[in-house]
């Protein structure tokens, strides 16, 4: 396995984890609370937490990473069509994965490249891979990793495959995690990704360790897959936690997407 990105410098990280802070939506206006899907609200709050203290930074690009996007909006739209004979256009617009990126770009006036990556649990790594593809004049980029828990998914989970149940646990913590990424050479914490790459079986932790050594070197502290890949936003949450901890070191956050049978690694250097 080889790195799929150069070192990306992280100059800021912010997050919203609704389960940890019941008042997370305080800054959302009542009108937005009525109109905007909850997942958009989570992304908006995380983005403002990251960007508002840094008014000097002009964001050039936006990369959104999401497993299922606004799935609840899709469900609402289909409920309308199948039960009442018509669906709400608002639900339809919100159901489109890219709509959230469009709203964030509009809100933050990011008029450069706007990409939405959907690689399930590997979406964070895929988003970093996409940042790596941007030219220097298209950086810095806001990377937004966001997914919400959906009641419908919790109902379906017991009936999905073993792999899905293992890596997408019911009641997982929804989150929006925002990173400010660039490629410049200044000192500071960095992220680097490898993959997503197809793998034949669910990788064991020692397999992740071996692949990490191959990609990044042997002296990394590789987190256990079960600690950081049992929901869509979890790999990004793990990386954010490491970045915030201030504990110097080189860590690797593995992720595995059972639907795609693909593995990705994100190296976090603090």
């Amino acid at each position: 396995m080889k790195p799929s990105t150069d070192l990306l410098r992280v100059s800021g990280v912010a997050s919203v984890v609704p389960a940890d802070e019941p008042s997370w939506a305080e800054r959302i206006s009542p009108a937005e609370k009525r109109r905007a899907p909850r997942i958009w609200q989570m992304a908006s709050v995380a983005a403002h937490r990251l960007c508002d203290p840094r008014p000097e930074i002009r964001l050039r690009s936006l990369v959104v990473a999401t497993g299922l996007g606004a799935l609840d909006e899709t469900r609402c739209f289909l409920d309308g069509v199948f039960r009442e004979g018509h669906g709400s256009p608002r639900n339809f617009i919100a159901s489109v994965h890219n709509s959230m990126g469009g709203k964030l770009a509009q809100d933050l006036m990011i008029d450069g490249p706007s990409l939405t990556l959907c690689d399930a649990q590997n979406s964070f790594a895929a988003a970093l891979g996409s940042v790596d593809l941007l030219h220097d004049d298209e950086l810095p980029a806001l990377v937004m990793v966001v997914d919400e828990s959906v009641e419908l998914l919790d109902q379906l989970l017991p009936h999905l495959s073993d792999g899905c149940r293992q890596f997408l646990r019911p009641g997982w913590r929804e989150a929006a995690v925002a990173f400010l990424c660039s490629r410049d050479g200044a000192a500071g914490p960095t992220l680097r990704a490898a993959g997503p790459m197809p793998v034949a079986d669910v990788p064991a932790d020692d397999t992740c360790g071996a692949l990490s050594a191959e990609a990044f070197g042997a002296d990394r502290n590789v987190l256990a897959l079960a600690e950081c890949s049992t929901s869509f936003p979890m790999p990004a949450m793990a990386a954010a936690r490491l970045l915030r901890s201030g504990n110097r070191g080189r860590f690797v956050v593995p992720s595995y997407a059972p639907w795609a049978q693909a593995l990705a690694l994100v190296e976090v250097c603090v």
């Binding site: 996007g69 890219n98 706007s114 939405t116 979406s123 895929a126 996409s130 693909a262």
Partner: peptide, 21 residues
């Protein structure tokens, strides 16, 4: 990503990304 994964298997791709814009 499951569409991408199935294709990656058919083609033998080593790196695969899914963009949904």
């Amino acid at each position: 990503s499951a569409i991408t994964a199935a294709l990656a298997e058919v083609l033998g791709a080593q790196v695969a990304l899914t963009v949904s814009t």
